[in-house]
Design a protein around this nucleic acid. Structure first.
Length: 503
RNA sequence: GGUCCAUUCGUCUAGUGGCUAGGACGUCAGGUUUUCAUCCUGGUAACAGGGGUUCGAUUCCCCUAUGGACUACCA
């Protein structure tokens, strides 16, 4: 097999969508699986849509995911430059080759004229196509006398270069994922290859660069499938060997119809982008929402592909090992935010208490709480299996850091009996005599006391929880009081009894 | 409208010319936890429809329906 060289070729028009990240991931996995090269090429031939910061965003997103670029703008490489605007001079000569060969021609129609033709056709119920039938009555080097169009050229009249689509020819081609496809050229139009602003269109730049960069496999989104026949024709016109193609299925909305969009994320509260996008209309990112990159990558890899086993947990290295492009699905996958959370839950459980304590400490500092790592490790150990994200730890443990502001009225109604205050004050006295507040000690002493008094365990314990936590939730009560300590425990009992007693 | 692509539980999916069509997420029930959550166990639930081919089709072929992409001097 020839040397594998694949490229991820995004357009810097805004934050990179997770569908784009998946495309990059599959390219990367394929490259590494085959000991090949992963190239990042920036396709910025549309000057009007360029967005400041998008290029950096793309690179940082890949980095966060652990996808390492072998050749690119910052990495360098023998096939550079890797930004199409920096390759501007290259494309014109290739467009000219096609014109000289007679496979392309010069067209003077303005966008306005073509727009009018389109809308006129639409009114009559059909579609305007710039093809063999139409081009003879339009303004181009095929329809005009040579002297006339050469004169237009000489006077600086704006023009584009279009591909001259062959008439009535069946184009056969293969896609690694979709198999054999046949399209008749009569349904295709004379696509613009070179724009009047001096830049190539995607179609030309893409083919030229893929050829020059010796790309072996083009792995890209399904939205490119309709232009694949054009691309095949272009390779043929140039006399180049075409790379192999694989068109990836789309990522679809969690509900309803259509492909996943930023709107879905906003509406349903999940991110559609890997990182926070800070410019203009901002967008949430997986990283900032608290997802681990390994969870994000694992989740994304399994959307549209799986190795055929029942295992669902894969590290990036394991993905490289088991990945095969042939097992990528043909149909689109609906994105499921719930499963994404589940992946994060899994990876969070895999972290050590020390790692989690370090992460949670940063979160606590922002809230103004300062605790040493040993304490936080204990806390995290008690709580981690209940949470999906580090930020959730706070929601589950706020009462560790501060006593209750108020007490759940439903719980009071159910658990606060007339004898409760007396029992709790007795409990306070019992606890006061314990020096070692480790959970096992306090638990056995308290249980003994309850039994010796003949109290109802449930009633006492639930009231105890109420004054400590303020509600009917949280881990083992003895784990909680061990962590908050004797002094705080006694204070909370006293305060609870006096506050609730007055209600 | 035209061209192309697709279609297994609600979702992600496994799978085969003959299987009780498997797993995961979700959901529901039970257990554990004298709380809540976790966790454990169990349940629910699918081959889009219609024709063929065949002894036999979820699997192969055709049609229909539905969904999707594309249809720019955007990528």
């Amino acid at each position: 097999m020839q040397q594998v060289r694949v490229r991820f070729a995004p357009s810097p028009t805004g934050p990179l969508h997770i569908g784009g990240v998946r495309t990059a991931l599959y390219n990367y996995l394929f490259a590494k699986k085959n000991k090949g090269t992963f190239i990042l090429r920036i396709e910025d031939t549309d000057q009007g849509r360029f967005v400041e910061g998008a290029e950096e965003y793309i690179m940082e997103s890949l980095k966060w995911c652990g996808i390492v670029v072998d050749e690119g703008i910052t990495e360098g490489g023998k096939y550079g430059p890797y930004r199409q605007s920096d390759r501007k001079e290259i494309y014109r000569q290739y467009a000219d080759i096609l014109v000289e060969k007679g496979d392309a021609y010069i067209s003077f129609d303005t966008p306005e004229q073509l727009a009018k033709l389109r809308s006129d056709s639409e009114k009559e119920g059909d579609t305007f196509i710039y093809n063999a039938a139409a081009r003879v009555r339009l303004k181009n080097s095929l329809s005009l006398p040579e002297a006339e169009w050469k004169n237009l050229l000489a006077t600086g009249c704006p023009y584009v270069i279009r591909y001259k689509m062959p008439v009535n020819e069946d184009i056969h081609f293969d896609d690694i994922i979709r198999g054999h496809i046949v399209v008749n050229t009569n349904t295709l139009d004379d696509k613009v290859l070179f724009k009047s602003d001096g830049m190539p269109t995607y179609h030309l730049a893409n083919i030229v660069d893929d050829h020059l960069m010796e790309i072996s496999h083009v792995i890209r989104g399904e939205e490119w499938l309709p232009s694949l026949p054009l691309h095949f024709l272009l390779y043929r016109s140039f006399g180049w060997n075409a790379p192999l193609f694989a068109h990836l299925p789309l990522l679809l909305k969690p509900d309803g119809k259509g492909k996943l969009s930023k709107r879905d994320g906003d509406k349903m509260g999940f991110p559609v982008f890997p990182l926070f996008w800070p410019y203009g209309e901002t967008a949430k990112g997986y990283r900032e929402e608290g997802y681990y990159p390994e969870a994000f990558v694992n989740m994304l890899a399994l959307l549209g592909w799986n190795p055929g086993t029942e295992n669902e947990i894969f590290s990036l290295a394991e993905l490289i090992d088991v990945f095969s492009i042939e097992k990528v699905h043909k149909s689109g996958s609906r994105f499921d935010p719930e499963k994404a959370k589940w992946f994060n839950h899994h990876y969070l459980q895999c972290r050590t208490n020390n790692q989690l304590a370090l992460e949670f400490r940063d979160f606590l500092r922002a809230k103004g709480y300062h605790h040493d790592i040993v304490n936080l490790e204990k806390l995290v150990g008690i709580i981690k299996e209940r949470v999906n994200f580090v930020k959730d730890i706070w929601k589950e443990t706020d009462f560790f850091f501060r006593g209750p502001d108020n007490y759940d009225v439903e719980v009071i109604k159910k658990r606060w009996q007339s004898e409760t205050p007396v029992q709790l004050l007795e409990l306070k006295a019992v606890l006061e005599n314990i020096d070692d507040f480790s959970p096992a000690i306090t638990e056995s002493v308290v249980k003994e006391w309850v039994e010796s008094k003949g109290y109802n365990t449930g009633a006492v314990m639930n009231a105890f929880r109420l004054v400590i936590v303020g509600a009917s939730r949280g881990p083992h009560i003895f784990d909680i009081i061990s962590w908050i300590g004797k002094k705080e425990t006694l204070n909370r009992i006293e305060r609870g009894v006096s506050v609730i007693g007055k209600q």
